[in-house]
Design a protein around this nucleic acid. Structure first.
Lengths: 190, 190
DNA sequence: CGCGGGTTTGATGATGCTCAAGCCCGGTGG
DNA sequence: CCACCGGGCTTGAGCATCATCAAACCCGCG
């Protein structure tokens, strides 16, 4: 039961118990093991994923074969390849579990039906997307204004708890630097 | 009259003529001269801006005093500082006209009233934001997978017409490189 | 105990920035 | 109509940041 999702929605829009149970019929719970994939390059991205517990990441593989993390999603965040989700064309991204995770799956195919029944969810997703897009604008701001070293320091200062949860190389791939260089920065700091 | 806006909305959701005229009462046309500002750092971002004609840019000034462009908006695009727009806290960004422009202004304070009257706009903005957020994910992808030189080449190959409309230093600030380096790349190409 | 994924180390070198100067060209005022 | 001014673009030398590569190391897990 996606108790987390209903609770999260209620922070943004009204949702009665009855409506919450309608919501249930439009979503699907999913447990996924660490390193499991919800989406791979070339596949059609059919769903939007809400993290009840655990952590997912959206990444791609560049021409040199290195993984580059675009986004992490922890508890109460949504993640999908929005371009692929909208177009239903083969995706250029991967979505992978960073930890053993409990997910609520929201299929693209049932979206319109659900919005027809619970119109306030249209508002909920608008609000979520405003927040996500705002975060994305800030991400660009950090990328352009900070040196790699400062990006790293800033990140671990801002999210110390989260840094504990992910391996270094994954953090490196999120910040756009090499694991070797992360190592060097850490050495310097001591 | 924001004919462009109504037309744009109709591409995404239904909108009768009567509803379009209601929309009119909730928006405000604005003409702004090249280099004029719609938002400056420290001000509260009270509106979302739709470009009917012309071009706007969202940028910030980094600690070295250099302008860094986060986003351009040409005809039929919205632009605002979403974080500031949502929180109504003083912004860290600037919004400036790149050309003489015709804008439709949508004030934050009237947003809820309008959505109550025209609920389908909730959907419209959700769709717009999905598209914008998707574009933003791709922007990250390009930043992480291409060298500066290839970012530049890729951009001018993808948007040759748009490149004509903006000065080099502004394009440089969008791609996160220096005008000097752009110069160097252009020299090499010949 | 051994395997393997992840991290560290260090040497080398490319990418792309900084700074300072000159240049080009379009606009403005005399 | 010309001269000047200044914003933007170019040039080049020098240099910092950060990537690359190869090797060793560490340690948790099967």
């Amino acid at each position: 039961m996606p108790a987390g999702l209903a609770t999260h929605i209620k922070k943004f829009v009204d949702l009665t118990e009855e409506e919450a149970s309608i919501l249930l019929t439009y979503t699907r719970p999913l447990e996924i093991k660490k390193k499991g994939f919800l989406l791979k390059e070339g596949q059609v991205c059919r769903a939007n994923y809400f993290v009840e517990k655990g952590c997912l990441r959206l990444f791609f593989i560049d021409e040199k074969g290195t993984e580059q993390t675009v986004q992490f999603a922890i508890e109460n965040w949504w993640v999908t390849d929005y371009t692929g989700f909208r177009s239903q064309a083969p995706s250029h991204f991967y979505i992978q579990a960073v930890e053993n995770s409990k997910i609520t799956v929201f299929e693209r195919s049932t979206q319109d039906g659900l919005f027809a029944k619970l119109p306030q969810l249209e508002r909920y997703f608008r609000l979520i997307l405003e927040k996500s897009y705002g975060a994305s604008q800030w991400r660009i701001k950090y990328i352009f204004s900070l040196s790699k070293e400062n990006m790293y320091k800033q990140f671990i200062a801002s999210f110390p708890a989260f840094v504990q949860r992910i391996p270094q190389y994954m953090l490196a791939s999120y910040l756009g630097l090499t694991p070797e260089y992360v190592s060097e920065i850490r050495k310097k700091k001591s």
